[in-house]
Design a protein around this nucleic acid. Sequence first.
RNA 1: UGGGGGAUCGUCCAACGGUAGGACUCCAGACUCUGACUCUGGCUAUCUAGGUUCGAAUCCUAGUCCCCCAGCCA
Length: 560
Amino acid sequence: MASAEAGRDFIRDIVKADLDAGRVEQVVTRFPPEPNGYLHIGHAKSICLNFGIAEEFGGQCHLRFDDTNPTKEEQEYIDAIEADVRWLGFDWGQHLYHASDYFERLYNWAEDLIRSGKAYVDDQSQDEIRHNRGTLTEPGKNSPFRERSVEENLDLFRRMRAGEFPNGARVLRAKIDMASGNINLRDPVLYRILDAEHPRTGTTWKIYPSYDFAHGQSDAIEGITHSICTLEFEDHRPLYDWCLENLNVPSRPHQYEFARLNLTYTVLSKRVLTRLVQDGHVTGWDDPRMPTLAGLRRRGVPPAALRDFVKRIGVAKANSTVDAGMFEFSVREALNKTSLRRMAVLRPLKVIIENYPEGEGEELEAINHPDDAAAGLRKIKFTRELFIEQEDFMEHPEKKFFRMSPGREVRLRYAYFITCKEVKKNAAGEVIELRCSYDPATKGGNAPDGRKVKATIHWVSAAHSLPAEVRIYNPLFSKPDPSGGEGFANDLNPNSLEVLSGARLEPALAEAQVGVPVQFERQGYFCRDRESTPERPVFIRTIGLRDTFAKDVAKEKAKG
RNA sequence: UGGGGGAUCGUCCAACGGUAGGACUCCAGACUCUGACUCUGGCUAUCUAGGUUCGAAUCCUAGUCCCCCAGCCA
């Protein structure tokens, strides 16, 4: 039954039309990762597309590992991929498959092709095959082994399977057309000899099917109706179709292609991501700077933000690069709704309230979420000695700066109005302490005489706050369009990680759970990291709040 | 000089012969115990040249530019 709403993109249009016309009775899609790395935000687009379509149109979506190359694939990746897809919010139910589940059937289909004279064993070396393939503008040459008898091909192919030949000695090729303008049709390799241990089939197999020979048939076995992949497979489609048309397959799937995701300041090449990890540019696949789902999760990005982002960017066939700001918007929007508010001072500046009694303190009430009364209130401790943010004070304020400065009155959030009376400096001339006075009548943050202040700043009690480490992340790459090739290392941002070791947190943050986002008021969204110790919490900044003041300052500076 | 795709605001996506619309960004303002959120208002686009048509982003013709393909990777 087709969803009532019209498709939101060309693929959904096709699905809907197929359903409406009765060409398929239930849509079946699949997400087919190769377990040779971790999933990233680009995969999220594909996952949301495939699982989303299945959901919307009442169909099903399979998770299928495309594990046809044991030299690159590992169990660690298989496990991580399953966890990441679940985390994103999708469920494949009973439909977990592996291309390797189909090795026997694929093998038999290969023999079928040989028997019908449409495949042959080629003894040429890899170099010879490459050489004889021709070029983009010149046709290839037929292999001298192209006209072997069915019997000889069958015998050789069986002996390939039996492990009688070394890696690379022979391959099975489709007999199509060495002069085709589409290079994929110049007798593509269907099977190669690979003496490697497969994470699932172990050493059972000595030969492995190529992607082109495995994918379409796997789709057909599973009854996939719409096989959705990225643009670079567009000119593989004739081969996809050729296999299905020349084999006795149980169903007839069709392939559709969409443009993969590109993001500014980001590289989504699996090869580069692998290098970042292996070469130690990041601490691992889940380094919070990585665009991997594991990295984003550790960073504190909620899965709902990913899903929202994917919905916003749409699906089309034109290559494009999405502004990372669009992703940030989705992250902030999701976080704003759900994050509890807390106060934390990242770069502390000591404040002493001179007219507040020494050794005393009081509890004040603070709101946990401004848009959600059900989130309730909490108590915060106010004392004579406090910390405020260094950047909330300027000895010589510039024109539009209206936070704390000498002689100026500001509000401490949920507490009192205070006025800066004196500035203490160290020998180097750095401000190290502010002496202030408070107005007891402004308790809770409002002046009974109705006077206003231009700024409200956050603070913590010096004695009650918790020391912590806070990690601020900046883009991993310094260029909007970093190299996805060998030059990637030159485009890395040397300041992608900033560690603030002297931060101070309000006591309620002691209960923060790893990975659960909170808003540090006026600063951004943060979450406790798994590297925290009982003595020393570590918080990670998921993303900063929008900061129009900082932006204006930067603009002024740019103007000169 | 082969084959396969693609060109619409700064960015991403719509419009399926009938007023080029939305989102992000940006700009101006309102609100504010977060310079956040929210809310108002605004700027900016059909690759080019012809043609068909009452009417073209959409159809036709000829160009231009961009992307992918020469793995026994996927």
